[in-house]
């Protein structure tokens, strides 16, 4: 095998596209050729550096909105999903809900769809450079950052003392709406806490589900929907949720 041939096959070797026989041939050539050894080493380092640096771009929220708006909108049938979309309708709807005029119950399939969107958002956030828009361990920095970016103000609680480090906040997009994500870390595990407004002020107890290997703890309280998503084990995620809820009750939100 000449170096020129090897150089071409080297690509396929790096990219895992070579069958075992040819892979062995290339490796044999490389083993006896300083030139190709150096090339292979550099290419591998480059790939690694690119993966680490995160050469991806994140689509601006504005673009997402433009595309959503350009797609045909579902007709204005007063279905429950439209009500859910009324995160933004804010206090008027909340007031109605409080007087018991509107009972909000999410349809099961809507709930499932939103849960899977929440998992997708969690996955996206794990790509390099996508985790946080504002990086801070200080709840008094993260909390005001959301002001003006969302029509809801997500509670930001420092749970460092309880073993969950606050690392920042991010805007995300779920169910065609901007949504706040507060990001925590437990050892090497990231927890995204998604917070959106709901028209219901009723408290809904937490439920833990598993989708695509991620655990989601969902609960509602005081007009907000919460989804905590992580690859943490269910008991630790439950622990996180309980600590968060009890801190909310004792009023330590920033």
């Amino acid at each position: 095998m000449t170096c020129d041939e090897a150089e071409l096959l080297l690509q396929a070797l790096i990219d895992g596209e070579l069958d075992a026989g040819h892979a062995r041939d290339v490796e044999n050539h490389v083993a006896g050729c300083a030139h190709c050894t150096a090339m292979l080493r550099d290419y591998r380092q480059m790939s690694q550096a690119i993966a680490q640096a995160g050469a991806q771009y994140k689509a601006p929220l504005e673009l997402r909105k433009r595309i959503e708006n350009a797609l045909p909108q579902p007709r204005a049938v007063p279905n429950r999903r439209a009500v859910l979309r009324g995160f933004a309708m804010g206090s008027a709807v909340s007031a109605l809900a409080a007087t018991g005029l509107v009972a909000i119950v999410l349809r099961h399939d809507d709930m499932e769809r939103i849960q899977s969107e929440v998992v997708s958002a969690h996955l996206r956030s794990l790509q390099a450079g996508h985790l946080t828009d504002v990086i801070s361990t200080d709840q008094h920095t993260v909390k005001p950052w959301f002001n003006g970016r969302l029509d809801v103000s997500p509670p930001v609680i420092d749970l460092t003392a309880q073993g969950f480090t606050l690392i920042g906040g991010r805007l995300d997009y779920v169910d065609a709406r901007a949504i706040g994500a507060v990001v925590y870390r437990r050892r090497q595990h990231v927890i995204n806490l998604f917070v959106s407004q709901t028209a219901s002020t009723e408290r809904r107890a937490a439920k833990i589900e598993t989708i695509q290997g991620f655990n989601i703890r969902h609960w509602s309280d005081r007009g907000l929907n919460y989804w905590a998503v992580s690859d943490l084990a269910t008991d630790e995620l439950a622990d996180f949720g309980e600590k968060f809820e009890s801190a909310m009750r004792s009023g330590t939100a920033g």
Partner: peptide, 27 residues
């Protein structure tokens, strides 16, 4: 048809998760 809400929903679910990838390629 284009105003079929079911089509819109399926499209959103299938295509929107690749928005960052598409944007990256276009950049």
């Amino acid at each position: 048809s284009d105003d079929n809400p079911e089509k819109t929903r399926r499209f959103r679910e299938a295509a929107l998760p690749y928005l960052d990838d598409a944007y990256t390629l276009a950049r």
